[in-house]
């Protein structure tokens, strides 16, 4: 096995192919993650503020969440008249998936901000927008964060599925490796996908820790 791996990486064209696939995979999973978050945030806020819209928005999010990404990879090019192998298909499909996944956690996170805290912000003269950006959103971050972590792992794993119909990313190592009956290549693809998910997850955790120092203060009362 090790011999096979060494042989695989011994070839410059293989190395280049793996790095390209990794780079493309990263792009195809992280761009939708960011876009999906940016879409889910205003929808979650709207669902929080406008009570009668809430059921409708959550229902729509649930329907979009139910539609398999693979189906979207195939249907989007037909609906928009794009080439089947355009990377836009994957980006749009996963953006929809991520946004649909994040609407509910975003709403729950915003709802979980204690009423007395938002009341205090209003009473001190915060306007709605400022209160949202500087008080409610920071306090909602820890709860939204767990949703974003699930979404990042899922989209990284879903990008590979696109290889079934020929789109790029590490999934190509699977189809290509299968056709050439080259197990080492498939294993490398699996390991890199898991590593990518792990690294992104660690970076996200690090980011949350950086922007939410108060969550590490601990719940105990210190002696004065």
């Amino acid at each position: 096995m090790i011999e096979e791996l060494l042989k695989f990486f011994g070839s410059p064209s293989n190395r280049e192919m793996v790095l390209d696939a990794l780079a493309e995979h990263t792009y195809l999973s992280l761009v939708p993650l960011l876009l999906g978050f940016l879409v889910a945030l205003p929808i979650g806020r709207l669902a929080q503020r406008v009570y009668w819209l809430r059921g409708m928005l959550l229902g729509a999010a649930n329907v979009f969440y139910t539609i398999p990404s693979l189906a979207l990879y195939v249907l989007i090019p037909g609906l928009f008249g794009w080439p089947l192998l355009s990377s836009n298909n994957v980006v749009i499909a996963l953006t929809i998936y991520t946004a649909a996944l994040l609407v509910r956690p975003t709403l729950d996170a915003l709802e979980s901000v204690p009423g007395h805290v938002t009341a205090a912000a209003t009473a001190m003269g915060y306007r709605t927008g400022r209160s949202f950006l500087t008080v409610e959103l920071p306090l909602a971050v820890p709860a939204i964060a767990s949703g974003v972590r699930v979404a990042s792992v899922s989209s990284i794993s879903l990008v590979s599925l696109g290889a079934l119909i020929g789109t790029g990313g590490l999934g190509k190592l699977f189809t290509d490796g299968f056709q050439r009956w080259y197990p080492a290549q498939v294993l490398i693809g699996i390991v890199l996908t898991v590593l990518l998910a792990l690294v992104v997850d660690l970076l996200l955790v690090g980011l949350w820790r950086l922007i939410t120092p108060w969550t590490r203060a601990g719940g105990r009362v210190l002696p004065s």
Partner: peptide
Amino acid sequence: YVIQQAGLFPH
């Protein structure tokens, strides 16, 4: 304005 649970910003 002072309220019951103090309404302090936890963050």
